[in-house]
Nucleic acid binder design. Structure first.
Length: 933
DNA sequence: CATGCATACTCCGATTCGGTCTC
DNA sequence: CGAGACCGAATCGGAGTATGCAT
């Protein structure tokens, strides 16, 4: 261990992983990205909750400045090639020869504490593998992956607490890190794969050299490398226990050969009956197939045996507009072919949406529109003269738009019987497509409707947004169906592109869409057994990961110091994926929106703030902004610094030696089927479990439900699931605020009534009669009183008018205006009362039988109301940008929710709406009140 | 105070685009 | 290595429900 004491200590890193440090999500700031085109840099201030256990004392709310949408992202996006060039320079392929000692940074003190284990020379380590693997595990008490959950987490491995940070802030670590790399001769040990060796300025250089011994492995290519990665054969070790463990627990009756692949029952349920346990048979003839009670081990390639369905439903053909409704060009009504008119109509529908203000959208639309116009005979004016449309800005869609709006309104105001008739008609047309018959069972089909034509609404800055999505013809549609069953007839006069019988896929029909060339499918609904089974498998896979997670974390924490750049990047990426729940981040093309995930992060997406803060700011899936300012372990910080080192600059990949394929391949070694996204499922469900465990089993149903939602919210934040705040959110919040104030004023008046009855009370209970600080504002009270007065007036007037209407209707005479005046005199009284009230601070109770007791009970009721309104408002404000649904549907193992409901005696309906109950039927029946993820 | 009714708001499900990952 | 097959995602419109108001 001589001289080998690590400065930043592996032990902290290791412990961080093994005792399950979780995503540091409480630091998360979820804020919607400003999606406007031509992003300007808007500055805004964001509140986010500080880590509760944060020892630095960042309690309450921390203000962060967030910059929205800055800089040209695409501008400097480079090919990944430059990496090669880098290699000759600094860090790449450079073995670490010399060991740099860090002498003067603040971290040193910590380093002393490093455990011996980690300081064992690498060469030796290999031989100690077993120990290495087992020891830390034994020490682990708390496997929780999430930092926020456990207090102790923060204490040990979360060394970088804010206080510490500040203390270290100005130290020269940073400078050191960047300056300390030396150029070393490149090593190209292998022909197949280029490796970059990282020099780690700080510490472990010497051991690295030793470790290079296994370099031989490199020459053997990928496979070898992976297996030797850990001298233990991971893949093998990974599953000392065969499949049995996971899903099958419940199956008592599956005595038929467990390992042989039992394909779906042949024929229609006959085969099924034979190997279906008795209890699975139900009396109903339409017996429900409980696949989760009858788990057949299939290899998964064959998805069905028989399949019957009725094909797809095409949208109605275009209905031309009335002759008087036209697009105008330069003020002149334009006559178009139906095809062109339809496209114009697409836009006409959207003139009041933000799309119409999007330059890319309009440009793409107009280009495609002109093409259609040209191909369909051009545009003419009323006299038949050609109109040559050239400028989008001269187009006036308002006639069309108004027409559509009117149409919609007409539909809305239709009588309910008409609506019903219309719906019945629609249902009838759709009926036969709703279900298919799969392996003899009726299953719901999902999206049997062919997508109608329209304008492509790409999300974010999609280069193709606004392009015309063409009408799909039967000739483009391929049908997939079982052999020997009737093929659904194509629409009259048409043919299918093809009819196939492929039982290795789950789709019933497919076509190619014209915008991106993507393939679209008609598949079964989420409630179907096919989807249900794969959903179930997904969660079982995530649970399987539980068994490997400690080892995986230990490994990547160790490999954060790997000498090979690729390994180190991979480890760092795994850290991010595990801790921050990032997506894998596949490469994307230039004809898509510029969004990234972990592997595709670029220089400009990450900012470092010594000593340990990493700021992520990028657009993820759906161009949803991911912004997080997060403290990472020292080694990760160091690595990020290295990965950002010059000559890398804006546009360059952070992980230039890593891609998702490599990453997933590596993960496969740990566990079959493991890929990056499993971590999201795992961490989400795990977090949920931890959160639910904290909920006390007391209190009202409402409280429990609220607590459940809070847990759900934490998961949603972890996964960065956002939603746009509704346009009227602010006004709604204001309304609620006013409402609460009004209630408070009511309360005040009740108290004043008490004082009227028993003035001496004020001395007895001064606290009770202290002014309510929330409405301790004379002008507000006056305004409020005024508005109450106005309301009253309005009511009286309205009532008066209504009465008159009725009188007129009945042929009688209207009441005189003087009558109204008379009635309005009450208002004068009211105003006088207010005045009196403001003067004396008491209110004469209106009701005869008013007693102090009655008033007090009314006050209590008001208090409840106020509290409810306030908590509701708080929740709404807190959830305005957080979408809970996505995690509930896709990431949180439904059995957790079922467990929660059973254990806490909450009805499942409260937690799962109908469709989810159906989708998760398997979970409803297989989890009890003590089920664990 | 219960009831009926119109309106506001919420929430749900459908939709369709955007990812991941495998072969 | 790109096509293919799925899973995951936010959004949108409408159904359903709460709310407010008059009776």
């Amino acid at each position: 261990m001589s001289g080998r004491a690590r400065i930043n200590g592996t032990s902290s890193a290791t412990s961080a992983s093994t005792n399950g440090k979780g995503p540091i999500l409480q630091r998360k700031v979820s804020k919607l990205l400003d999606k406007k085109i031509g992003q300007q840099a808007d500055r805004m201030t964001v509140d986010y909750p500080a880590k509760p256990e944060d020892a630095a004392g960042l309690n309450g709310v921390v203000k962060k400045e967030v910059v929205v949408g800055e800089g040209p992202r695409r501008a400097k996006r480079k090919a990944r090639k430059p990496a090669i060039k880098d290699e000759s320079s600094d860090d790449s392929d450079t073995p670490l020869q010399t060991k740099r000692r860090r002498t003067s940074n603040g971290v040193k003190a910590i380093s002393v504490v490093q455990s011996s284990d980690d300081d064992v020379p690498l060469a030796k380590k290999a031989t100690q593998k077993n120990r290495k693997l087992t020891t830390p595990k034994a020490v682990i008490k708390d496997k929780k992956p999430l930092a926020l959950i456990s207090k102790d987490d923060s204490s040990d491995s979360d060394i970088p607490l804010a206080a510490v940070k500040l203390a270290k802030e100005k130290k020269n670590i940073a400078a050191k890190v960047t300056r300390t790399e030396d150029k070393k001769p490149a090593v190209k040990a292998n022909g197949t794969k280029r490796k970059t060796v990282i020099k780690d300025e700080s510490d472990s250089d010497a051991p690295m050299k030793a470790k290079r011994a296994p370099a031989g492995r490199k020459s053997n290519g990928v496979k070898k490398e992976e297996s030797s990665d850990d001298d233990i054969p991971l893949a093998k070790k990974a599953k000392p226990t065969p499949k049995k463990t996971a899903a099958v627990k419940k199956q008592t009756n599956k005595d038929s050969t467990p390992d042989t692949k039992v394909p779906a029952p042949k024929g229609k349920g006959k085969a099924k009956k034979e190997d279906t346990p008795v209890d699975a048979e139900t009396a109903e003839e339409e017996e429900e197939y409980k696949w989760w009670e009858n788990q057949a081990e299939t290899d998964g390639t064959q998805k069905w045996t028989t399949l019957e369905h009725n094909g797809v439903l095409f949208p109605l053909p275009y209905q031309p507009l009335p002759k008087n409704v036209k697009l105008k060009y330069g003020g002149v009504p334009v006559t178009l072919s139906p095809a062109a008119e339809e496209v114009a109509g697409f836009f006409g529908h959207m003139t009041d949406t933000p799309h119409a203000q999007n330059a890319v959208f309009t440009a793409n639309f107009f280009k495609d529109f002109l093409k259609v116009v040209k191909e369909s005979g051009g545009a003419k004016d009323a006299s038949g003269k050609k109109i040559n449309m050239k400028e989008f800005t001269k187009c006036d869609f308002s006639d069309m738009h108004n027409y559509f709006v009117a149409e919609r309104d007409a539909k809305r105001t239709m009588s309910s019987s008409e609506k019903k008739a219309l719906k019945a008609e629609k249902d009838k047309a759709e009926e036969k497509y709703l279900h298919c018959i799969l392996d003899g069972r009726k299953e719901k089909v999902g999206n049997f409707r062919i997508e109608p034509p329209g304008l492509f609404r790409g999300r974010g800055e999609h280069p193709k947004t606004g392009m015309v999505k063409q009408r799909v013809q039967p000739e483009q549609v391929t049908i997939n169906i079982g052999k020997g069953v009737p093929v659904p007839p194509p629409p009259k006069g048409h043919k299918w592109a093809d009819v196939i019988n492929d039982n290795t896929v789950t789709w019933l029909a497919t076509w190619k869409e014209n915008i991106n060339g993507n393939i679209k499918y008609v598949m079964l609904a989420a409630t179907s057994s096919l989807k249900g089974m794969s959903d179930f498998k997904k969660f079982e896979k995530a649970r399987e990961l539980k068994k490997h997670i400690d080892r995986i974390r230990a490994d990547y924490n160790r490999e954060l110091k790997a000498e090979l750049m690729a390994d180190r990047q991979r480890a760092t990426a795994m850290y991010l994926i595990d801790q921050l729940a990032l997506r894998a981040g596949n490469e994307k093309g230039d004809d898509e929106a510029d969004t990234v995930g972990c592997c595709s992060l670029r220089y400009e997406h990450v900012t470092l703030e010594a000593p340990d803060l990493v700021i992520f700011d990028f657009l993820g899936k759906d161009s949803i902004r991911f912004y997080q300012r997060v403290a990472v372990i020292p080694q990760v910080f160091k690595n990020m610094k290295i990965f950002k080192k010059p000559p890398k600059t804006t546009g360059d990949m952070i992980f230039d030696r890593l891609d998702t394929t490599q990453l997933n391949k590596h993960l496969q070694n740990y566990m079959p089927g493991l890929s990056a996204k499993v971590f999201r499922t795992y961490n989400a469900s795990w977090t949920m479990q931890q959160q639910l465990a904290k909920i006390p089993n007391t209190g009202s149903l409402h409280d429990k439900y609220a607590a459940y939602n809070e847990a759900n919210k934490i998961v949603a934040i972890l996964c960065n699931h956002q939603r746009t705040v509704s346009t009227n959110h602010d006004s709604m919040m204001q309304k609620v605020e006013e409402k609460i104030k009004a209630l408070r004023y009511q309360k005040l008046r009740l108290k004043r009534q008490i004082l009227f009855l028993e003035p001496e009370r004020k001395k007895k209970k001064p606290d009770f009669f202290k002014p309510d600080p929330e409405i301790d504002d004379k002008t507000w009270i006056l305004e409020h009183q005024q508005s109450l007065v106005e309301q009253e007036k309005d009511k009286i007037r309205k009532k008066f008018e209504k009465e008159n209407e009725k009188l007129v209707e009945n042929g009688e005479k209207e009441q005189k205006h003087s009558e109204l005046k008379e009635r309005l005199e009450v208002i004068d009284e009211m105003e006088a009362e207010f005045k009196e009230e403001n003067k004396t601070g008491t209110v004469e109770p209106k009701l005869r039988g008013a007693t102090v007791e009655k008033l007090e009970s009314q006050i209590e009721k008001l208090d409840e109301k106020i509290l409810k309104q306030e908590t509701d408002a708080k929740v709404r404000e807190g959830n305005k940008t957080v979408a809970l649904g996505t995690s509930k549907i896709n990431y949180i193992d439904p059995r957790l929710s079922v467990m929660f409901c059973k254990k806490y005696n909450v009805s499942i309906e409260k937690v799962f709406p109908k469709t989810l109950r159906e989708k998760f039927k398997w979970a409803l029946e297989s989890a009890d009140d003590s089920w664990e993820f």
